[in-house]
Design a protein around this nucleic acid. Structure first.
Lengths: 206, 206
DNA sequence: GTCTATATTGAGATAGAC
DNA sequence: GTCTATCTCAATATAGAC
């Protein structure tokens, strides 16, 4: 159901000619601006330059749009956490790999990940996506526990707390990152890793 | 319109007898579980054990519930950022004060702050609340810029990025913190400050 | 593959009795 | 201060023509 090709730059507002992916870009942008529930098909039709009913030729329902969009986020995130660099080697390198990978996915597929992070679980589809997300969280927590056990994580902090704060920071990036801004995803990933490694302070401050 | 007494433990589900505050607790809990837009008056009535129309004796509209709830969050947050400890003294102490204060407010008024952080700006009320929130963000950014200028913030990171990552981490706490769990708000604030100061690593790791 | 209807449901809100 | 009954509107979705 979900081809996993890169997001790409699709045609915008150039009269019809939508395929599923280019349509989804417009749709998900609207979902993120107004919230999924608050975005009516009427608004979507307006943005797409189509009538409401025309939308049903591309998607069976509003919720199917959500489903396809969430898959784009989850497939990419799962790929990071299942990669060999995330499952083998030194624990510390694995953590660095998944932090960096999560930041990159988040920047590159920002609209789709944004949608994922805001789910409330109101329908079976949302619940399933949240379950996949929780599975990722569990892998993450395990990594932090391993780090604590081997003594590379600071001992005065619970691994769960460290994990949640770290990925809370990572996830919050969707709220402000602009793909067309001055910061590249790689630079941002570096900043996150710096902050997580050694904090904000210039030696002997804060 | 908004008395600012502490949240308190109000009567739950004990047949009628609701006042505005105890009613709001139930309402906001529902808003946060399902999302504001996805929460119908029917669902609220069910949770409250009232009919839909009875709700209108306490609030003029669904949106007014949101408005009153948002004020509870914003009043408390603004109090932190306007406190003398946030506006005078060493910049580094000011930053520490607002980080700690934000974490504490967030834990103590979690449902209300959660609502605030998830706004999309779909109505004038939401836009006004978001404007108040942005004013707070500006004060925050200014503090980080001052820190950079005086050389207490690490020089290899933009102050805006440092600020957003830090408060992204702080704000993400609403997603998992449990007031009745094992971690006290003070402990959590300490953990955040530790992480922000010196990072996650046990010296010479990660 | 898009359109103009239209069906159907459920939303927020009101009227007026008790 | 709560109820039942109802109003009005907008939502998702469908039917069927072009």
């Amino acid at each position: 159901m979900t081809t996993t090709e890169p997001v790409g730059t699709a045609v915008r507002r150039g009269r019809p000619g939508y395929d599923r992916d280019s349509m989804l870009e417009v749709v998900v942008e609207a979902f993120n601006e107004r919230g999924y529930d608050a975005t009516s098909l009427g608004v979507l039709a307006e943005r797409l330059g189509l009538s409401k009913s025309a939308i049903y030729h591309h998607f069976a329902s509003k919720e199917q749009m959500l489903e396809v969009a969430l898959a784009k986020a989850l497939d990419a995130l799962e790929a990071v956490f299942d990669a060999p660099e995330a499952t083998t080697g030194a624990v510390v390198s694995r953590i660095r790999f998944v932090v960096r990978g999560a930041v990159l996915v988040l920047c590159e597929r920002k609209p789709y990940v944004t949608l994922l992070l805001r789910l409330r679980g109101n329908t079976p589809i949302e619940l399933e996506a949240m379950a996949r997300r929780r599975a990722i969280d569990r892998k993450l927590r395990t990594l932090f526990e391993l780090s604590r056990d081997e003594g590379t994580l600071r001992a005065d902090m619970e691994p769960q707390v460290a994990e949640r704060l770290t990925f809370g920071m990572v996830n919050s990036i969707v709220e402000w990152y602009r793909p067309d801004g001055p910061i590249s995803p790689e630079q941002l990933a570096d900043s996150v890793l710096q902050l997580v490694r050694t904090g904000l302070r210039e030696p002997a401050s804060l």
